[in-house]
Design a protein around this nucleic acid. Structure first.
Lengths: 338, 338
DNA sequence: CTGTTAGCGCGTTCAG
DNA sequence: CTGAACGCGCTAACAG
């Protein structure tokens, strides 16, 4: 009724029952009789009581909240990962905070700092492309709270990682192009400072070597994942006359290159094949014959959050798990704890 | 160093300065000498102190956090809105919580409930398609905290709404098709229980009437925004032989219809024109000749958050604002306060 | 099964 | 400019 929220004391006074009993009743403690519990719940509803999570969290030092930190939610892959995370989290009674780093280290640092201030119970993160040291994340770990890395692997020991087998996926993708008869395959790669792109490049090279195809450095484009880079690369490709295949290890650049090809009326399916990692609906639209290695985003999200909850509840039995999903491989890499 | 976080008391003891002074220094109060301020800040950094927002919020009853509630973050339009919101919010020193209702009322209710528990300072919401009453939101308003509606208008009085002029945009879209020579224009609409789709349908009808084109009920498809609906509608359209135009007031159904046309080898640009509301990159890829009325998503986000901050800071001078952006119209509809 | 007491970490009085 | 004391709302620990 009033502008101020009802507290347990309001309902305590209204009923002549001590506030601690009210608190217990509201938490459905077995140590309160059904009768008084009923009275309390009724009064609570009547007064429009809603628990003050801040006070509760302050007391218990548990926020029932976990955070996902990732480059951008607009990428289809990440949106799917979030869906998977929310599904498991909500079932487990946790709230999820979503944070975008925009692949910017400074932003990521700030995010982690406010997550520390807000005392979230755990963090799942796909690190920014600029992240090469992990001090900000270690500050969080020092609080004895867990971090799970997904998609982009953490290069530190003692980290839990959830991702597909990037080497194998890359190998498969390249092999697929070779099997279709490609001999001159361009590779869109990312910065070699990042383990993820080293792994993917390695898979590409391994497949070529296995098929006795010469590795040509001019065919490998290192870039960040912007649309501009995709267009720039596309232009270069059109100048390399004999290209018959393209394997891109990132979807953003691949899609923008495809757009460029279209605008230049290059007939894509006959001339160039593209293999990307995500099942973004845009890739299905851009060219139906496009070949794609999908990452099982939903499963990655579920897996990552489940591992996080295991950590939060100190079920430390996390060991190396590994299994296949669809066309790609989901790996949980885990080195011993503390 | 320790597993436990440093508090202001730790730094208070370490320095022999009272914790209240430490608190003031950390909040950059002018009532602390620069000298002691310096000492305190240094020690704070040394101990790895990070403010406990929970305690701070509990004390001040301000969380410095606002929430965005919307159907799904994966829709390009919403992702852009979020970008706009985050930009303004971070500048203003606020954190942003993103929540997906998945167009499900029960979920929306639960979200609002936990936002109340977490005492966020304000909410911006694009209501779910199932939302026809606003009790859950009124519970929040009773705490004297502001709500701003965007995209999907709230049908209650005394609400702040940020959206384009849907009637006009619809009118323009339909007029555009008519100007291109279309006489038999199909309209994809949403549930007429929702004001948004009523407005859009009204704009379509108004344009036809102005051009003396007969309104044909068979040309109007009411559906929710699923992909399945798009395909279902596409099939029906192919049966209506003389259709020469399609005006869709939602992008999801339009895009999936376009996909279907493509798969059936119907040559889209000559046979059917599509007009949608969003600047989703997917629509640019699906068919370059596609005509689109864009919603200025980024601006909507900025506008909505700015209005929210005005409310939070009790600058109640919000009056009717109205201006044009790009091809569409951005309206803030606002009826008098309290 | 219920009441009493104390304190989570911080900010804000009110004194000096 | 700084210190002492209190309380935000809730729950854990200890009584009874």
């Amino acid at each position: 009724m009033n502008k101020n929220k009802a507290t347990i004391h309001d309902i305590s006074k209204a009923l002549g029952i001590d506030s601690s009993t009210v608190s217990r009743a509201l938490n459905d403690s077995p140590r309160v009789s059904k009768k008084t519990k009923g009275k309390i719940l009724k009064k609570a509803k009547e007064l429009g009581y809603q628990r003050n999570s801040l006070a509760s969290s302050l007391r218990t030092s548990k926020t029932q909240t976990i955070a996902v930190v990732l480059p951008r939610i607009s990428r289809h892959f990440f949106a799917r990962v979030i869906a998977g995370i929310e599904e498991t989290a909500h079932k487990a009674g946790y709230n999820v905070i979503i944070c975008q780093s925009l692949d910017n280290l400074e932003r990521e640092k700030k995010i982690i700092s406010t997550l520390i201030s807000n005392r979230v119970d755990g963090i799942m993160i796909s690190i920014s492309m600029e992240t090469t040291n992990y001090e900000h994340l270690e500050a969080y770990k020092k609080l004895d709270k867990p971090i799970v890395f997904f998609d982009r692997p953490c290069e530190l020991p003692n980290c839990i990682n959830v991702n597909i087998d990037n080497f194998q996926a890359s190998f498969d993708a390249t092999q697929h192009l070779i099997s279709r008869g490609c001999k001159h395959i361009v590779h869109f790669s990312g910065s070699q400072k990042i383990e993820l792109y080293r792994q993917r490049k390695a898979g590409y090279i391994a497949a070529l070597e296995k098929n006795n195809i010469k590795i040509n450095d001019h065919y490998i484009f290192e870039s960040n994942l912007s649309e501009e880079d995709g267009i720039r690369a596309a232009k270069k490709i059109l100048r390399l006359k004999n290209i018959d295949g393209l394997y891109s290890s990132n979807d953003t650049a691949a899609i923008s290159a495809m757009k460029y090809f279209k605008s230049k009326r290059v007939r894509v399916p006959e001339d160039i094949a593209v293999v990307g990692f995500n099942n973004d609906p845009i890739s299905a639209v851009i060219e139906p014959s496009l070949t794609t290695i999908n990452q099982p985003a939903l499963e990655i999200g579920k897996m990552a959050s489940n591992l996080l909850f295991e950590q939060i509840n100190n079920k430390t039995k996390t060991t190396k798990i590994q299994f296949r999903l669809l066309n790609s491989e989901l790996i949980i890499r885990h080195s011993s704890k503390k």
